[in-house]
Amino acid sequence: MKPENRHIEPLLWSLFGAGGMTIAFLVPAVILVVGILMPMGLLPAEALSYERMSAFFLDSWIGKLSAIALLVPGYWGCIHRVYHGMHDLQIHTNEKVKLGCYGSVLVLSIVTVMLVLFG
């Protein structure tokens, strides 16, 4: 590509692909555990206790990486479809709207990583 014709879509699409992957593979089980099994009392009482959850997601490296992998790519996957969905619904967008969409997800991603690493 000539430099003047280059655009950021390939990056945004890659992030969307990564998010599509994590939502497809990780999120169904997480919703099942957090949103359905736990409220219905089908999990042992201590399963999602503060001690266990904070020890795993905030103190262990594998837990920290899991939390980031579960959340961050998903934000990008969702916002990509939201942005393109606006085009599908013929809602007029411009560079500012685009910057707002992807920019807020960038901020959310940074905050998530900071919380997990230093929270």
Binding site: M1, K2, P3, R6, E9, P10, L11, W13, S14, G17
Partner: peptide
Amino acid sequence: NKAQGAQDWALSFLMPRKGEK
């Protein structure tokens, strides 16, 4: 072609010449 384009996009930072194609 999107997958290929994404790969080329990333590679263009490692090998700037590739980006000038």
